[in-house]
Amino acid sequence: MTSPHILLPGQRVSLAMPNRDHLPDYHRWENDPGTILGFGTQVTQSWEVRAGGWEGQRANRDYPQFEVITTDDHTPVGLATLQIDGAVRTAEFVILLAPEARGKGLATEATALTLRWAFEYAALRMVWLKVLEPNSSGIAAYQKAGFQPAGRLRQSGYWLGRPCDELLMDTVADDYLVTSETA
Rank of each mutant, 00 (worst) to 15 (best):
E92I: 11
G86K: 08
G86W: 07
W54S: 03
S136W: 13
W47E: 01
Y142L: 12
T90R: 07
Q143C: 13
T81L: 03
V88A: 08
Q143R: 15
I69R: 09
E109M: 02
A87W: 13
I95D: 11
I139H: 02
T44L: 00
V68P: 01
G103I: 10
G86A: 15
T90P: 05
A118Q: 04
V77C: 13
Q148H: 12
Q65H: 10
S46I: 02
T108E: 13
A118V: 03
G151V: 01
W117G: 01
K104A: 14
K104F: 11
R125W: 11
M126H: 11
E133Q: 14
D73H: 10
P99D: 09
L79K: 01
Y121Q: 14
Q65T: 13
A150T: 04
G53I: 00
M126R: 15
Y63V: 04
G105W: 08
L82Q: 03
L96S: 03
L124D: 06
P76G: 09
A123Y: 13
E48A: 15
A107V: 05
A112S: 12
L124A: 05
A110Q: 00
A51F: 04
V131S: 05
A140M: 07
A123G: 12
G146P: 12
R58S: 00
G151P: 02
A107I: 04
D85V: 05
G56V: 12
E109I: 06
I95M: 14
I95C: 14
L82N: 06
T71R: 15
G103K: 02
R152T: 11
N135P: 12
Q45T: 01
F147E: 01
W128I: 07
R102D: 00
R61Y: 07
E48P: 01
P99K: 06
Q65M: 12
N135H: 15
Y121D: 14
A110R: 00
G103R: 08
Q83D: 13
V131Y: 03
V127R: 00
R58H: 06
Q57A: 15
K144E: 09
V88M: 09
P76C: 00
G53S: 10
T90W: 02
R89H: 14
V94P: 09
L97F: 09
G138M: 08
F147R: 01
D73V: 06
V94C: 12
A150F: 13
E100M: 09
M126V: 13
T90I: 11
T81V: 13
Q83P: 05
I69Y: 04
V127S: 02
V68M: 11
E67A: 14
D62E: 14
L113V: 10
L96I: 01
T111Y: 05
R61N: 08
E67I: 03
G53Y: 00
G138F: 01
Q65I: 12
K144F: 03
A112Y: 10
A91W: 04
A110T: 04
A59W: 07
R152E: 07
L96Y: 06
